[in-house]
Design a protein around this nucleic acid. Structure first.
Lengths: 343, 343
DNA sequence: ATCGTCAAGTCAATCGATTGACCGAACAGA
DNA sequence: TCTGTTCGGTCAATCGATTGACTTGACGAT
């Protein structure tokens, strides 16, 4: 284990040039005039000594950390895994490091734990912050502005400030509903997400629009909280209604898992008695039984786009973007024509 | 948005003291003698100006970044989500930030992409590095030692250097086998992981030991690669054998998902014709059909312990720890007595 | 012979916080 | 009165890289 850190000065000494030359060689400063042989000596010395620039010194001088932050509610949610992947890849492509923090790393005393996270991150460690799945909490904007770095919400809108990139959840919902309509369903229910979640309201809007377009009456609508338990309870309510739907558009996969369980425990079968389609094509969806029909949205692309925008965002720019990108229905075993479709 | 950054000097000026005093107040320097009222002035100024220490300057001076790194193969693997959670919580408790990077953020030209990651991380950005799920690649140790920071492997051993914390996979495997034995199974197969994975070999060892202890002959053993596709193929091989097993201990959940599919596509039923138990109680396990019986291991605790050790590790310390912690069998629907157990 | 220009670097201030050394005033004890 | 000690701070070097300003020597043009 090499003990003493190698600095610019060491490299400069070995190459018999000034520290400035080494710095300019490393940063490819176009104003530098240098003989090829000298450049070679510098590069050789860097290689020989195994020199790596000290990030702290560089950040201090340039006030750029070459690091972006991403804050998410929970690492265990596979939706965020996809977003992280995209964001990380794009950050890497720009020579940046992505540091992802979750609310579970905080005490979560108030709100999302973002405040505590920002305090630990400190000043000057990141050049920009992405917030995924965090909504419009009181004091949030002030907290972010105090940090004086560009920030952006992903997959969620803030009502007060236009700084977000979202997916076209409305179109995704429409795609799901159209799929069910094409299969012959006419009583299509909607198992919505929690009303405070921005994605939930957009998916619900998409459902309504698509039903209208198909000339169908909106089936029963009930909301759950994006968890399997909530989904199961909600499905129970749908099944207890008078006119039982033959299909249901579920706002997310977690709810759908519970909904499937709810159908089974009522002694019914999927898709024979009930077709189910949900939003986000997580790997998990294909492992369920029956494999869940989903709508795939470009989550990784969302992460990627977020990083790209962060890199070019001016302090007071506003961003309100619906990410263009492929949205497609992935048909699996959980949807089929309704049982009475023979008639 | 506050524009100009607030520095120590600004605070000092407002409180009418030297910068040194402010610094010592912030860091609670015990050698500082200060009047209560002066301290109040300083704290008031900090609050008033919204001062946050500049991380780069602090790191440069102290050569501590208050940040730990964690490198994983893939964010989409829920095993790592658990580890991250534990590591993040412990890091936070110590006032550290955890930066998690994955191989998918790199080109992965050679090996795991760790080299590229380390280059982007640079020198001095992290005070220690945790490697989860990364094995003994050539050049790995040199790469790590060049960074001159403490590091540790999680859930994997390196043959060359003793720097790891692992779980008691052997005991976990034994627990799974004992469960099957208790149910009355005698022909218990083993669907192992890839031979290059350290966890796989330890789980296999546990299987063998438990079978020996139960006085049973080792059933058919076949290996897969910790993926659903591999698991399905492996199950195909097991079912094609002459003496078909009544139960199988699968080395991980991903393989088990494929194995279940393999059983179904052979026209057999779980658990009637085949009991299945796998290692790691991921949330996903309870969503499968039938819900998968698993062995729960303290993954979050592993992450936590890794961070704790990193914080106290001396450069040449060796660490070879099997984490003590609860390991328990979570029985669900995928295991039952064998069909012929009446006789 | 002199001026200007260009190549090839060098010099040194700077970023912001930390920390060992030091200093002046007040007071106690001899 | 003088010395020593404690209190309550101050001073300034330092961490390592960056970058605008400057220097030195050689050459060409006038």
């Amino acid at each position: 284990m090499k003990r003493s850190r190698v600095t610019l000065a060491d490299v400069a000494a070995m190459a018999r040039v000034d520290r400035a030359v080494v710095s300019r060689v490393i940063n490819k400063d176009p104003t530098l005039n240098i003989r090829p042989q000298t450049r070679e000596r510098v590069l050789a010395a860097i290689d020989e000594l195994g020199y790596r620039p000290n990030v702290a010194a560089r950040s201090l001088r340039t006030s750029r950390a070459h690091m972006f932050g991403l804050f998410i509610p929970d690492f265990a949610n596979p939706v965020y895994a996809e977003i992280i992947k995209g964001a990380e890849a794009e950050a890497a492509a720009q020579g940046y490091v992505l540091v992802t923090g979750s609310a579970s790393g905080t005490g979560m005393g108030s709100g999302t734990g973002l405040g505590e996270y920002m305090d630990r991150i400190g000043q000057g460690r990141i050049d920009g912050l992405l917030l995924a799945g965090t909504g419009d909490e009181p004091g949030l904007i002030e907290q972010l502005d105090r940090a004086a770095i560009p920030w952006l919400m992903l997959n969620n809108r803030s009502r007060s400030v236009k700084r977000y990139v979202i997916l076209d959840d409305q179109r995704a919902a429409a795609l799901a509903v159209e799929h069910l309509v094409r299969l012959g369903h006419r009583r299509i229910a909607h198992l919505a997400g929690p009303s405070h979640a921005d994605t939930a309201t957009r998916r619900s809007a998409g459902y309504s629009a698509a039903m209208r377009d198909a000339g169908l009456p909106e089936g029963p609508i009930t909301a759950a909280d994006y968890t399997p338990a909530g989904g199961a309870a909600a499905m129970g309510r749908l099944l207890a209604g008078q006119e039982r739907p033959t299909a249901v558009f579920v706002a997310n996969v977690a709810s759908a898992i519970g909904a499937m369980e709810g159908v089974r425990s009522a002694g019914l079968e999927i898709p024979r008695d009930m077709s189910i389609v949900a939003v986000h094509d997580l790997p998990l969806a294909s492992y369920l039984y029956p494999a869940l029909t989903t709508v795939r949205m470009p989550l990784a692309e969302l992460g990627r786009r977020g990083v790209t925008l962060l890199g070019s965002l001016k302090p007071d720019d506003t961003v309100a973007e619906v990410l263009a990108g492929p949205i497609e229905l992935i048909q699996r075993r959980s949807t089929a024509p309704p049982a009475d479709s023979g008639g």
